[in-house]
Design a protein around this nucleic acid. Sequence first.
DNA 1: TCCAATGAGCTAACGGTTAGTGTTACGGTC
DNA 2: GACCGTAACACTAACCGTTAGCTCATTGGA
Lengths: 201, 201
Amino acid sequence: MPEQPPSGRRERKKAATRQKIADTALRLFLERGYDAVGIRDVAAEADVAVTTVFSHFASKEALVFERDADFERRLARAVTDRAPGAPLVPALRREMHALVRHCLADEAAPVWRMIDASPALREYEGSMRLRHAETLAAALAAEPGAPRGAVACRALARFVVDAFALAREADDPETAVDEIFRMAEAAWQAAEAGAPVRSAT
Amino acid sequence: MPEQPPSGRRERKKAATRQKIADTALRLFLERGYDAVGIRDVAAEADVAVTTVFSHFASKEALVFERDADFERRLARAVTDRAPGAPLVPALRREMHALVRHCLADEAAPVWRMIDASPALREYEGSMRLRHAETLAAALAAEPGAPRGAVACRALARFVVDAFALAREADDPETAVDEIFRMAEAAWQAAEAGAPVRSAT
DNA sequence: TCCAATGAGCTAACGGTTAGTGTTACGGTC
DNA sequence: GACCGTAACACTAACCGTTAGCTCATTGGA
């Protein structure tokens, strides 16, 4: 395990720089609008070089979604860390309720308004969620009880992350989550019934 | 109907220019690789100005997906133009089979290989399909028989376009389409049963 | 103490995209 | 058949996100 050696000031400084960049960027974006702020503005305001920004974040859009690795982790854990024998889909539904509430009611509202206003950010979020769906699909495929095919797992995973996007835009997000998960539950059962995963003769 | 007036040379020339740009671009992309060809190369080879390229196509990626408005239309028509009383989901399934076959077996193979090789193109395809899903959702919502809520329509629509992406990547695309549409059928029925669309007392 | 690693910086560019400004050629109208 | 508005196209010159290539300096370990 050659992993912990650089444990000290170095790491702290790096993390501090990263945080400073992210905070500055978000502040500027909210103050002046995402499109009206350039990377060079962010770098200048955070007092770092442009290249430093890109050494911490892969793209301008990534500055906005700095915290969204949580989303990925929480969905996967809702599957893997649930009580033994607990049903799968309801566990995902509960987690999704929490995620939607979290991003919808919070002080996070201005951020989401900004995202909705920018096509670039919406597009970025879309492909980010797709990556999240693949992670979830992997977790589903690793489920011991009642295994479906890989395709069914990926389909359900996409359905679940789609639920997030749809609920966020719905008039009544809570109801929308429940509605979509009724569909997800049915789809998941149909995948079990219909595709015996080539193990039965 | 203020729509047909400019029917003449003007339109033909415009269409010809557009086609020449698209053909040139696709040829260059396939010859040298998508990333190795710049917009300036395309413009020069098609003997037009760079700004002309962008007056016909919204982005570099759009040059590759020139023909994919078909996809959107065919899905929507599979819903609206089917025989009266014919079941919805099987009609979509048949159309999806045709679409997958069309893009998979054809001489279109090199194009799809190119798309799969480029993150930019994959991302672009993703958000394009999302737009297609919205069109399909609108068609579903306009269905007279057994209306579901808008959320259910959007959810099914996304499920259907996701089917395309998943089938294209699956080992056995035909079987994958069938598998996913078994799930879709179940989901659609669950949406009917569960959400009475606030018309029953 | 010296070294290797690595974070951060600078300069300069590349490539997609857009404003701004003309210039033509077409199509409909008198 | 001359006339005018429109829209396609061209050209220049940039803007902006992103990257390459290189150097500097701090840090942690030998």
